[in-house]
Structures are given as structure tokens and as C-alpha cells.
Design a binder for these strands. Sequence first.
DNA 1: TAACTAACGTACCGGTTCGTACATTAGGGA
DNA 2: TCCCTAATGTACGAACCGGTACGTTAGTTA
Lengths: 213, 213
Amino acid sequence: MTASPPVARRRDAERTRAEILAVATAEFADRGYDGARVDEIAARTSTTKRMIYYYFSGKRQLYVAALEAAYARIREAEQQVSVDHLGPADAIRRIAEVTFDHHEANPDFIRLVSIENIHRAEHITRLPSLVKINTPAVLLLDRILSRGREAGEFRADVDAIDVHLMISAFCFFRVANQHTFGAIFERDLLDPARRAHYRKMLSDMVVAHLTTL
Amino acid sequence: MTASPPVARRRDAERTRAEILAVATAEFADRGYDGARVDEIAARTSTTKRMIYYYFSGKRQLYVAALEAAYARIREAEQQVSVDHLGPADAIRRIAEVTFDHHEANPDFIRLVSIENIHRAEHITRLPSLVKINTPAVLLLDRILSRGREAGEFRADVDAIDVHLMISAFCFFRVANQHTFGAIFERDLLDPARRAHYRKMLSDMVVAHLTTL
DNA sequence: TAACTAACGTACCGGTTCGTACATTAGGGA
DNA sequence: TCCCTAATGTACGAACCGGTACGTTAGTTA
């Protein structure tokens, strides 16, 4: 056995790279691209700043790598959902709930997307891995909408992307704008006591819209 | 007439201050707090950097002043809406449409709010002019909801802030996330050809939810 | 075991950027 | 008219920060 599995190698390119990416994701999500500090990312790592440039070439490329990895994780999570055994309305509810839970569980991703929008998506646009791939969520919605329309339960003037927009807008805003909303209206949108209320409100809203013919 | 109105005074504190604030608002909205450059703001002004510190003391205070002024303008615009002559459902539609138009017409305000949320609303929280004042929009919604419930047309398990959340989330997301959404789904949410569709979709959605008892 | 390369560390540089010390001028009031 | 102060302009400093030159070590392979 010459190729024994290396246990706790002193030098491990994969591990070092992954650690840098994880710390960078947190730092960029926390402070934004311009607010993030390369020195700070390095300090929170068990390695040095030199390694960031060794593996990622620069601050910008590190940010892009973090963004790409974050999107990849979301895509993978979306793949897991299956709603083929449910009726159209319940299937829509299920998608809404999964999206709701997903946004709540991944605030760093939400923040990265907000930050990327402040930069007018200039980085994401150049990522071939991100464009032109319809997300699992939208493909799923498209099938459900077809079933609902065939059954005469759903209206026909909205498509899958429109429904995805409705759902995402609510889920995203609730997390992304929790701070200003909380400051102005004195209502904590993430208060666990209100979670069930908003989760139900979202699916009620989407289903009510789709079934109002 | 010793106090003749000064026409195009060479020195005008009010005018200089206002110009700095206007340029700063655009710069902060464009690049975010950390991305904005004090030298750049000064360069776009007809005065110098020294005046920024003379009138606003520092970059941070300038940002806070820009944010505060932006919120004040929004409040003022919300005051103008009157829907007392409309039935509950149509009144809701009117509010949704006004909010929709308002978000589309003020992308800089949207961006400032996004930026402030990245900073977890740390600046806005310290502004006494912003907290505890219920916005005109919410007060209006509250009256409409009461009328709708009394008429037996509206459900009773949502309050004015909830409805405001539904409407704002959709309007805000459509503008704030247009870039990443456009890149991923290849759909321009601000395409004029789709404007009427989304405007109607929003009010349909909110009214459908409220009238589904 | 020698030698070669991937992986890692240290120290530092140069430009950027917020902020200010200091000088100056416009304009109103006594 | 003279003077006092609000308003403005210039030049510069000091710290920060992204990036790199240069040197070192671990692990692999012949």
C-alpha cells in the first residue's frame, strides 16, 4: 500500500484551498466585496495571505469563486425536492415552503446575492457555469403549472419564472431586508413566533393567485 | 430693500451643502458605502473635498445624511396617495400600483436600502427621525383592511404590515435583484414590455390572497 | 537517498484614500 | 469703509491595503 490515505497531512492543497474559500465566503457575505479585507480572510485561516494569491490569484477571483460555489450549493439542494406525488396546489405549496426554509437557512447566500446585485451582477455574468442553466426549481414549477392548467385549477397567464419570482421575492426580502424593515416597523421578520404565519401566508398567497381564474 | 434675494451668490452654504448631498447620494447608491470614494464625490461637485468635511464632518456622517434624506423623500411621496373614494379591493390595488411605480422610479433609494441592509441597518437604527414613525403607507393600509374586513370581503389573519411586506417584497426584489435574476433566468424584470404584466400580477396576487377567506 | 517540485511563510512595497493643517476670500454688519 | 466671520481652496500626511519578491520546507519519485 504505497498510496495510503493521508491522515492529517501537514501539506494538503485541497484542504487549504477549501478553508480559504469557506472563510472568504463568510467574510465577503459579512462585509461586502469592498468591505472585505484580504488580510482579515488570511488571519481567519490557518494559512497565510500568500496562499490566497497562490490558489486564487487575487481578491476579485476569490470573490467570484465564493459566489460560484454558493450558487452550486443552492442548485444541489434544489435537486432534492420531489413533488410528483402531490396535487398541483399542494405541490406549489411544497415548493414555496422549501424555498422559504432554504432562504432562512442560508443567510450568507442571500447576502452574497444582494452584494452581487449592488455590483450589477458584473461577476456572475461572466460565469459560464451560471447562465443558461434553468434551475431545478423553475423546471419543477413548469411541470406543476402544466398539470394545474390541464386540470383547470390554475390560471394560464403566468409562467414558471413568474411564480418563481413571486416566491423568491417574498423569501428573499424577508431575510435580506430584515434589518431596515425591523428598524422602521419594529417588527422582526425572522421572529420564530411569526415564522409559521409567514410561511403559510406565502403559500396561501401564491396558490390564491394561481387559483383565482 | 437691504435684504434682496441673492441671485446666484458666489458663496451659498445651502446650495453647496445640497449639491454635496445630491452627488453623495448618487455615489453611495452606485458603489456602496465602502466602494464610494470621498475624492470622487468631491470631484463630481463644483466645490472641493474640504467642503464635505466642513458640512458633514466625515464620510460616515455624509452617508447617514444621504440615507436620511432619501427616506424623507419617500415618506413625503407616500403622503400624496388618497384612496378613500375606492372600494377595499380597488384601494389595495391602487396602493400596490403606487408602490410598484414608486420602486421603479427610485432605483437609487432601493440600492441605498440594500446597502444599508448589508450593514445590518447599523446607521438607520441610530436615526431618531426614522424609527417609531409609522409610514403613511402602513397607516393607509390599516384603514383599508378595516373597511374590507367590516364588509366581509377580506380575511382577518393579516395586518397592515403583513400586506405592506407582500407588496414591498415583490416591488423591491424586482428592482434590486434584476441583475442576478436577469443573468440566471435570462429575463429582464424591468423590460417595459413586461411592466403591465407584473404590475397586474402584483395586485392580483395581493387581492386574491386577501379575498380568499 | 538525492533531487525536484508543489506547497507554504516572511517581509515588504507602492498606490490609494480618508482626513486635516493652513491659507484665503467673500460678504454683511457696525 | 472697515472688520469680522462664514465659506472656500490648496497641499499634504499617515495609515491602510492589495499584491509580490524572495526564501524555505515537505513530500514524492527515480
